Amino acid sequence: MHLILILSALGLAWLTRINESKTMGSYQQRWQTALGKFLFPPLLLFVTALSIVCMGPQGQMVWQWEGWLSYLLASAFLGFVGVSGLKLALEGWRSLQHVRTYPQQTIQGRPCRIINTPLVFSAQVGFWQPELVVSQGLLDTLDAEHLQAVLTHEQGHSYYRDTFWFFGLGWMRGFSFWLTNTEDLWQELLLLREIRADQWAAEQVDFLLLAESLLMVVSAPLMHSESFCAAFSCAAPKNRLEERIEALLAETHLPQPPNWYSLMWLLLSLFPLIVVPFHQ
């Protein structure tokens, strides 16, 4: 029965992902749909593996070897999940420690770490309380008004704790990379994250200044680890940049209060835990 549980979880995870990752509708609807499709399969697989390990290799099985096989498979998967999380956390911690070696200045009332490079770059780097990092090239390229727009965008990432939540999402991406549409959904969430920060900033500064800043900041980020780095210029591909500008010009407001009802189906990922008390 344990092996059937594993195969059922794999089949359901695959069926959830076979549809197109990018949906039509408002940005809020796209966010809810992409987040649900991204979260449900890895959560289901993780909870299924955890349930099997909790039940152990003993029980009523179709084949005598099934108990130990399913137990070893589940244990190996949980080990892979744990190693993926530790690796990502170590990379994030090292990046944060490296960032803290840069000199700190107060720019327009915000403490910033300054990278001495001509490249145009700004980002929040870290976890719950990230460090704001800007390059000397950004300070030299933008005037005060455009610089304020960029810094306000980064403040939007800090407001939504994007580096912290996307570290968790990046962990799931790391151990579920082999699932269908994982990368497409990840890129969709990154784009919607940037649009959300853009819209938050547009409530503080002129949205035209923000759109102009997007066009001016075209250099690739120095640190391209998006799980714990929220960079203003991370939407470098032309189509993503155009969509961010179009969202600003349309004055689309994102986010609205989250529609938790539409994500309640994620509780289905906890279903395998229900069978644990009834295991014999």
Rank of each mutant, 00 (worst) to 15 (best):
L147V: 13
Q129I: 07
T163N: 14
G82A: 14
K87E: 10
R100C: 06
E91L: 12
Q108H: 13
P41N: 09
A123H: 04
R113S: 05
T101Y: 08
E91N: 12
Q64V: 13
P41G: 07
G92Q: 14
S51P: 09
W128T: 01
R100E: 13
V81G: 05
P41V: 04
S75T: 10
W165T: 12
P57R: 11
A149T: 09
E145I: 09
A123Y: 03
F166V: 00
Q60A: 15
V99M: 13
S70W: 06
R110K: 14
F40P: 00
L45E: 08
H98T: 14
H146R: 15
L44S: 07
C112L: 02
N116K: 15
E154D: 07
L96H: 11
G79D: 08
F164W: 14
L147I: 14
T48P: 05
N116S: 15
L43S: 13
L119C: 00
P103L: 04
Y160G: 05
R94G: 00
T152L: 11
L139R: 07
Q105R: 11
A144C: 02
V134S: 02
L44T: 03
V134T: 04
F40V: 03
L43F: 07
G109C: 06
Y71A: 12
D140F: 01
G79V: 13
V62C: 02
S95V: 13
S122C: 11
F77Q: 03
P118I: 03
F167R: 04
E131A: 10
F40Q: 02
V133F: 07
A123K: 02
S51G: 15
E91K: 13
V83Y: 12
L139Q: 08
P42F: 07
V133Q: 05
L96A: 10
E145M: 10
S122I: 01
F77I: 05
S75A: 10
L88I: 09
P130I: 10
F38P: 05
N116L: 13
G126Q: 09
A76I: 14
V125Y: 01
P130W: 11
G92S: 12
